[in-house]
Simulated scan of single mutants.
Amino acid sequence: MSNNERRRFLRAAGALALAGLIPPATAAAAELELQQPGTLRVAVYANFPPYSAAGKGVDIALGRALAEHLGLQPQIVEFPADEDMKDDLRNMVWRGHYLGTKPGDVMLHVPVDNHFATINPQVRIFGPYHLETLAMARLPERVPQPSNSVAETFEVFTTEKIGVELDTHSSDFLLHILDGRLQPNIVHFPSLAAAVEAMRRGEIAAAMGTRTELEGAIGGGGDIALDPLGMPELRIRPWPLGMAVKKDSGQLADALSNALAELQRSGTLARIFADHGLTHRLP
């Protein structure tokens, strides 16, 4: 997974006035080991819509909801992605950045994967809250619906142009399939949102990337179709997004897991995605 693919209380003075509104988890929150008592520091990726960008996005809303459920004040930290996610976990979870940025108490948008967890023993990965997958946004009048066949799905891009984000699995995949015949028609963009805008102008006929990012970029317009991609040649299956804390922060992980379960049971998690015009998919 590339660094582009990537993922936002109550203080003691206000606690007395709002005592009747504080959820039952508040009492236990006082026992959690946090960098700043009473505050949950939540690390999310910067410039990563629709998950987190300029104070808005589903990860930012989820981080706030988790903190509030625990009776804590949310402190959202948007950080730029490093070379890979192992670096991000080091910088924002278990050690901190060498330039002085403190890590968060929890980081969101972390793939819940056994192998990935094994090669990052300094953190505890848990709490899957959304299932992400690869997809294609397309102009239906120019690009047919994708099938399970790479040849059938992508042959059209020997004549039509398709957009992808730089330095992503989608880019690498398109550059190498069909013996490289698509390369002249692959257009790279700094973001999937930029690719979708180019599609609206008719400059490209399709874009490939993560489904949620494409859905957020498309918005509610019906002129662009969005289809998941599931052919085996992709060599990547849908992946659950979750959270990470320091390895020894088991009590915090349990509290966050319980809070997430309650947000899911109450429908709050689904509403967070719906409020951002997105489809929530359970892992």
Results as ranks from 00 to 15, higher is better:
N3V: 09
N4I: 02
F9Q: 14
F9M: 08
A12F: 14
A13Q: 11
A17V: 12
L18A: 15
A19D: 15
G20H: 15
I22E: 15
P24Q: 15
A28P: 13
A29P: 15
A30G: 15
L32S: 11
E33S: 13
E33I: 07
Q36K: 07
V42E: 07
V42T: 11
V44F: 02
Y45Q: 11
Y45F: 08
A46Y: 06
P49N: 03
P50D: 04
A54K: 09
A54E: 14
D59R: 02
A61K: 00
A61G: 04
G63L: 02
L66C: 09
E68Y: 05
E68R: 04
L70T: 13
G71P: 11
G71V: 12
Q75D: 12
Q75G: 01
I76T: 14
I76D: 09
F79G: 07
K86I: 10
N91A: 11
Y98A: 13
Y98W: 07
G104T: 06
D105G: 09
V110I: 15
P111T: 13
V112I: 12
N114Q: 15
H115F: 14
F116N: 14
A117M: 12
N120W: 11
Q122P: 08
V123Y: 10
Y129E: 10
L131S: 10
L131K: 12
E132W: 05
A137W: 00
A137Q: 03
A137D: 06
E141M: 05
V143H: 01
P144Q: 00
P146V: 01
S147V: 09
N148H: 13
S149T: 14
A151F: 08
E152V: 07
F154K: 02
F154M: 01
F157D: 01
G163I: 05
L166D: 09
L166G: 02
D167H: 07
H169P: 01
H169N: 05
S170M: 03
D172S: 02
D172R: 04
H176S: 11
R181M: 07
L182S: 04
I186R: 02
H188E: 13
E197M: 07
R201C: 11
G202D: 14
I204S: 06
T210H: 09
E213F: 00
L214Y: 03
G219K: 01
G220M: 03
G221K: 05
G221N: 10
G222R: 04
A225P: 05
L226I: 04
P232L: 08
L241C: 10
M243P: 09
K246I: 05
D248L: 04
D248M: 05
G250V: 09
D254T: 15
N258R: 15
A261F: 05
A261H: 06
R265D: 14
S266N: 12
R271K: 07
H276L: 00
H276Y: 00
H280W: 11
P283A: 11
